[in-house]
Design a protein around this nucleic acid. Structure first.
Length: 320
DNA sequence: AATCCGGTCAACCGCTCAGGA
DNA sequence: TTCCTGAGCGGTTGACCGGAT
């Protein structure tokens, strides 16, 4: 489809011009980019056909729009997707399907085209090689009596590949389910992921599972996991809308009262577990976004093979 | 060094939808 | 109500690039 920049007859009719204007197609030249950028910065967005004409571009408005939105826009984020963005894309795709624009709307600085390309190349390739990314809109997950349950009775089914973990909460009474995705933490081998151990479940983690007295680097993975899930659990009746500080599973029906709060996704977290007797175990953390800065830079140090071996040893894991 | 091959990504196409006449 | 136009979306293509052979 992409051809060398050539002059060809465009199909688009010129609104106020009967002449058969030749419209360029193919790659944009730096000069064309410069013209469009200057025009957009000076005049802002308007009718794209007018923009194309007024900016002195021999392009159709559609082409100008695409070039601006996908490439020239100043607020675009460049570079590879972070693991956090990947996790978000995977989860959003599991909920929204191929609605790239809606997915892109939740990833500032990213375009639908970029996400679509990422999906069609990277993710599909991983799915092909691993056969397991838990990304279909109707996950094929079977329930099992042996699976752990959260405090509301929802069965928790874990699936994962080497760097992505998904927990599905299956509600048999309403035949509904929600899912949470998270990245395996960078120092996973050092601090095994507590959610993946049969002795814990997400909402009734026993005290040893709770971080003691402040930020524990080894728990960053936990938080990114919960964070990524909470961000998109809008349909979960237990979860308040996506905004500012929220509590997770505050309305826990029975047993412990377990909350997970965070502010603005990144900085401050509090975790509390209140048992039947009112005893409260609480931790407050300032961990930052585990996928940025120092922690993120550790991504290259992952022992993925070791991680794989370690993860596959967990008895509650299925679909791996 | 040349060729092949697979992955990435910019850009096009066709379609739908919304708004206005 | 119908038609037209522009905007936007998702699918697809093909140039380009880097690694493998």
């Amino acid at each position: 489809m992409r051809k060398p920049a050539e002059t060809t007859m465009g199909k688009e009719k010129m609104k106020n011009n009967n002449s058969k204007t030749k419209l360029r197609k193919g790659l944009w030249s730096p000069e064309e980019d410069e013209k469009l950028i200057k025009y957009m910065l000076r005049n802002g967005q308007g009718c794209w056909s007018d923009i194309a004409r007024n900016a002195g571009l021999e392009r159709c408005g559609k082409s100008c729009r695409l070039r601006w939105i996908n490439y020239l826009r100043p607020d675009l984020k460049r570079g590879a997707f972070t693991p956090y963005e990947e996790a978000l894309i995977l989860h959003l795709h599991s909920n929204l399907g191929n609605r790239w624009s809606q997915i892109a709307a939740r990833l500032p600085g990213r375009t639908d085209n970029e996400i679509k390309n990422f999906w069609n190349s990277t993710v599909k390739r991983r799915l092909k090689s691993n056969g397991n990314y838990s990304t279909s809109s109707s996950p094929n997950v079977s329930t099992d009596e042996s699976n752990p349950k959260d405090a509301t009775g929802r069965e928790i089914v874990f699936t994962h590949d080497r760097d992505m973990i998904t927990a599905m909460f299956m509600d048999s009474s309403s035949s509904s389910s929600i899912s949470m995705h998270g990245m395996a933490p960078p120092n996973y081998l050092k601090y095994p992921f507590p959610f993946l151990d049969n002795s814990y479940d997400v909402f009734n983690m026993t005290p040893p599972c709770l971080p003691q007295g402040g930020a524990g680097e080894g728990y960053c993975g936990d938080f990114s996991f919960v964070e990524a899930g909470v961000m998109e659990l809008e349909s979960d009746p237990l979860t308040p809308p996506l905004e500012s500080t929220r509590s997770f599973a505050e309305n826990n029906a029975g047993g412990d009262h377990y909350t997970f709060d965070h502010k603005k996704y990144c900085n401050n977290y509090s975790l509390a577990n209140v048992d039947d007797q009112g005893s409260k175990i609480e931790g407050v953390f300032e961990v930052g976004n585990p996928w940025q800065g120092e922690n993120y830079s550790k991504m290259g140090e992952w022992d993925l093979e070791g991680l794989l071996e370690n993860v596959s040893s967990f008895p509650c894991l299925t679909d791996f």
